[in-house]
Design a protein around this nucleic acid. Structure first.
Length: 563
RNA sequence: GUCGCAGUAGCUCAGCUGGAUAGAGCAACGGUCUUCUAAACCGUAGGUCGAGCGUUCGAAUCGCUCCUGCGACACCA
């Protein structure tokens, strides 16, 4: 039920449609304070047309309006404030939720449309850092949000599994490596070799030459180089998958950079054929001055390809394989310029979905204001952060709820939930200066806070002894429940808004508002009191449990029934 | 230097397409567990919304200028 529309219709009617109901609809707002009602119409916009003071117009509207479907309609200064019928609205909203269950808020805007999402994309032989966490959980959440809006999604982990760094890694391994070490703790040791390489090559430039040769061998299919590369890739992927399992994230494809090795010649051919390629300082570039961008460097002066060459091949492959309406790249904001270039080249090439290419940027993670770098050994390990958070959750359980069944499972859900929520709760674009203690907060506006509200609601339902609630809910006119009802009613809108902005934080902030409203209600109302409205209150609790759990699911966070 | 993003309470952030007295959380201080999980609830305190000009009946929100921070600017990804 669209209550905004109801208000707009009533207002238009009251002024004999001198202004269209559509124009009015756009002006309806939600008052900040409950005293001013549930919806409001500011009469300023009519002042010019009607040559009257807004206060008078507001009063006239109230005098003429048919307010039978509202609790009350009052004029406050230049505003007309509408109070919705709590009984009717609560019954309607809760019935919708109890009927649709986890499908409440679903829509079909994206029916029969596919979206590809380029996300996570860690580099082989390097640990996953907090930066990868961002791409992974933001991408995953956007995928869930899109699916809730009816889209099909293809989550593609575009692994960094090719490039000159493999020449360096092979060189380093052959010089200082140890097979058993790598088997025991692959990423740890491979990184050590890599860091050592960068230390040594400062004094010994020969190393770089050696690395170049090894990479050349790898490109030419040399058996030893290929064997090592494959091995590094396998052990790395195994380690990554452990982390993904902890995070509860999965992918549809793992088409890394190496997957496109044989697909780049075609890109160059097309660019040549279309006359887009030109020589500049020995390199092959596409001029983008029309778009006010720097030229895109397609081939280095030595003929080697570059990242953009591979990304064009990737975009072509996705276009041909999935025909996506959108092709999203969940990548840090420092690459914004680069993605402008990529999109511009794709457009020049006439790639069908070029307009659907969207960079979904997120803010940089720094430590003490400084950028992180694997090469300099200055990095925050994602696994370490997750482990600490889980340990912290375990400790909290020991203190607060020592009798909890399956403690380890819940500790994982809460610890990981805290980290994911911490990442998703504020706008993507905000940069984060990493402080571990800030990540390990379980109180206030955090994931565990929302999980806790959900667990409490489940707990009440267990205690109530009622197995199944009727799909047709009861009216709940209780003033103290009203804020909760209104938030429940707003959920479908939030689902759409999050999709439009590609903003998981919209969902996270919503879940906080709902959890907060519910906790407040919980503290002030005895839900299991034995009176006439108990059934209605349980309908509310069940509705809250459903929507909180679904909100968390959209963020990629689990909702334990007890904690 | 050019372009992009950001600047709101001590800290971290909300503030929807401009609207009614600028809101949370953390930290500080003070209350609330014999009653549905205190990972909670309630209260106190804390702000020239970076600065200025402009548009408007009305600006934290839109435009311009400036200041500060971060980032990107061809042979890395």
């Amino acid at each position: 039920m669209d209550y905004r529309q109801q208000v707009a219709d009533a207002v238009a009617d009251s002024i004999n449609n001198q202004i269209s109901t559509n124009d009015i609809y756009g002006k309806i707002e939600k008052p900040k304070t409950p005293e001013n009602g549930d919806l409001a119409f500011p009469a300023f916009i009519l002042a010019k047309e009607l040559h009257k003071a807004p206060q008078m117009i507001a009063q006239d509207i109230v005098n003429n309006i048919d307010g039978s479907q509202f609790d009350k309609v009052v004029a406050v200064g230049p505003y007309v404030n509408f109070f919705l019928d709590k009984g009717k609205v609560s019954k309607q909203v809760m019935s919708d939720i109890l009927t649709d269950k986890e499908h409440y808020g679903d829509n079909y805007d994206g029916k029969d449309q596919t979206v590809t999402i380029d996300m996570s994309s860690p580099n082989i032989a390097k640990p996953m850092s907090m930066g990868h966490l961002r791409s992974t959980v933001i991408g995953n959440s956007i995928s869930e949000i899109l699916k809730k809006n009816g889209y099909k999604t293809v989550k593609d982990n575009h692994l960094g599994d090719w490039g000159t760094q493999f020449g360096k890694l092979i060189t380093a391994y052959l010089k200082w490596g140890n097979e058993d070490d790598v088997k025991r703790d692959p990423i740890h040791y491979l990184v050590q070799y890599y860091v050592k390489f960068h230390k040594e090559d400062q004094k010994d430039p020969e190393l770089d030459e050696e690395a170049r040769e090894w990479f050349k061998k790898l490109e030419d299919g040399d058996p030893e180089a290929t064997k090592l590369w494959k091995w590094f890739r396998d052990v790395s992927l195994k380690a990554f998958n452990n982390t993904y399992k902890t995070l509860g994230v999965s992918f549809d494809t793992y088409n890394g950079e190496s997957f496109y090795n044989d697909k780049m010649d075609e890109v160059v051919d097309i660019l040549k054929k279309d006359g887009l390629l030109q020589e500049s300082q020995g390199a092959q570039v596409v001029d983008l001055s029309d778009d006010n961008l720097n030229p895109a460097l397609i081939l280095k002066s030595d003929g080697a390809s570059l990242y953009i060459t591979r990304d064009i091949a990737t975009a072509l492959y996705r276009e041909r394989t999935y025909h996506p309406v959108m092709n999203l790249y969940v990548v840090g904001s420092e690459q914004t310029n680069y993605f402008h270039q990529l999109k511009a080249v794709l457009k020049k090439m006439g790639v069908e979905n070029a307009d659907g290419v969207h960079h979904i940027p997120f803010g940089l993670i720094t430590v003490n204001g400084k950028k992180l770098s694997t090469r300099r050994g200055n990095i925050i390990l994602l696994n370490q952060v997750l482990d600490e958070s889980i340990a912290m959750a375990k400790q909290q359980i020991a203190e607060k709820n020592p009798d909890l069944p399956n403690k380890d499972e819940v500790a994982k859900q809460v610890g990981v939930g805290a980290i994911i929520f911490g990442d998703l709760k504020s706008e993507r674009i905000n940069s984060i200066d990493f402080v571990l203690e800030d990540q390990l907060k379980f109180e206030g506006e955090t994931g565990p806070y929302v999980q806790y509200a959900h667990a409490r609601s489940e707990s009440i339902l267990r205690k109530s002894g009622k197995k199944e609630l009727n799909e047709s809910a009861n009216e709940l006119t209780d003033e103290s429940a009203w804020e909760v009802i209104k938030l429940l009613q707003a959920f479908p809108e939030v689902v759409k808004q999050a999709r439009n902005e590609f903003e998981p934080s919209d969902v996270a902030k919503y879940s906080l508002r709902l959890a907060k409203a519910f906790n407040k209600y919980y503290a002030h109302s005895k839900i299991l009191a034995d009176d006439d409205e108990q059934d209605a209150r349980l309908d509310l609790v069940k509705s809250v449990a459903i929507v909180l759990k679904e909100s968390l699911r959209l963020l990629g966070i689990e909702a334990p029934d007890q904690m």
